[in-house]
Amino acid sequence: MTEGVLIKVGMADLNVGTGGAIIRTTGLGSCVGLTLYDAQLKLGGMAHIMLPSSEIAREGQLNIAKYADTAVPELIEQLKRKGASIGRLVAKMAGGAQMFAFANGSDSMRIGPRNVEATKLALTQLGIPLIGEDTGGNYGRTVELDSGTGVFSIRSVQHGIKEI
């Protein structure tokens, strides 16, 4: 049993857990916290996505957990290695807020909504249904996936705790 185990996912990071372990990422702003869950195996994974597309990357060694277009396939791959079936995986996501409002909204300032769009696109392309989301707004979120139940809980300063 791994009940009571807490698995942390950092910024631009991803991880998987099973058997009741809690997978958590803190302080999501414009970033997106995406979770995939296989209910039959009680197996889940989470990615803390920071940017929409690896096409804009200029780093030497690509951190594939950082970009929506690379993090989604990688998370699926890691779950498959633990036995997950792609046909059973369902997605939930939160984040993608616009923390600050600016009159001249340049593209880099709209990063939250772009992260949400890119994550949804990647899910659609891979045929994974999105069954719950709490995205947008102008506030930060801390999210947790209970790998025992698949319950995804979202905590924010203004709105308390919400489960989807």
């Binding site: 910024m11 631009a12 803190t26 302080g27 999501l28 702003g29 414009s30 970033c31 920071m50 940017l51 804009i56 990357a57 200029r58 780093e59 030497g60 951190n63 950082k66 807020a97 923390m99 600050f100 409002a101 600016f102 009159a103 001249n104 880099s108 990063i111 102008n138 506030y139 930060g140 979120r141 801390t142 924010s156 300063v157 203004q158």
Partner: peptide, 27 residues
């Protein structure tokens, strides 16, 4: 400076907003 904008929220959520430009280069 642009017109400033204020937020009262989690530090991680706020600061990540200023890291987008560095995000494409590394961690």
């Amino acid at each position: 400076p642009t017109v400033p904008s204020l937020a009262v929220d989690m530090a991680g959520a706020i600061l990540s907003y200023g890291l987008v430009q560095f995000g494409t280069m590394g961690d």
